[in-house]
Amino acid sequence: MAAEQVSTRLTRRGRWPIFIGLCVVAATIIYPLFFVTLTSLRPNADYLQDPFGLPAIWTLDNYTTLSRVYGVGDAFVRSLAVTGVTVSIVLLLAIFAGYGLARYPVPGRRVITSVFVSVMLIPGPVLIIPIYLMLSRMDLVATYPGLILVYVATGLPFSVFFLTLSFRGVPVEVIEAARIDGAGFFRTLGSIVVPMGLSGLATLAVLQFLGVWNELIFAIILIPDQADRLLTPTLANIGERFVTDQPLVSAGLAITASVPLLLLAVASRYIMQGLQVGVSR
């Protein structure tokens, strides 16, 4: 396209330095991750002997220790469950709200939209004290529903904003036609809006999943008991306690990073689409 026209002005020889430059930058990202993965697969003594070489002994002991002794396996399952439930609820509520705002004459729409947009600017630190007190009054501290409630509330503003934009892309004529045929809110939503907005929904689901999976502050303060914690705070704690055992901590890092990296590998198309919204905002 247009951009290609411009770039063709660089001669073939002129492009090599650029390619090499990009490779160097990419290496600064890939190598640390590679190093962590490799380190996690060797015993500590072997690591200390020759940290940069290939392991002389390959082992999965670090992983089994983390799972058996430090409950990382359970934390992984808990994280998966909390994240899954949160993302489902966020998507459901945001689909309703997004469709309403995009295609229904909601009274006070402008005010409602500006509420969703302006709460996005609230910095996280402002919320931790009031939310903790509110939840403790509701007896929801140290419970997963309490944590999910907070994640849903903090995930909704962006989600509603995102889906409102993305549902506006669904042609109004198609929806109108279905309405005239007698299809109501749920029918038009289920048979037209959701199927046509599927790629936007996938993008949003991935972004929300990453956000919840990686969250740290609320996961620490709302689940005070170490034994009940989700994966990310569990990892933070392990990192704190075992400074001298690099392979063990590396295994924890690899476990925590595995799900986001897998998601990026599978859904990079959707994640990159989500970026565009960030820019247009």
Binding site: L93, A94, F96, A97, Y99, G100, L101, Y104, P105, V106, P107, R109, I112, V115, F116, V119, I122, V126, L127, P130, I131, M134, L149, V150, V152, A153, T154, L156, P157, V160, G184, F185
Partner: peptide, 21 residues
């Protein structure tokens, strides 16, 4: 219908983001 669709999300956001501020 539109209002009912928006309300759950709005209540969550007002209750657990705007009110806490």
């Amino acid at each position: 219908i539109g209002l009912a669709a928006v309300l759950p999300a709005l209540v969550m956001v007002v209750g657990f983001m705007a009110f806490p501020v």
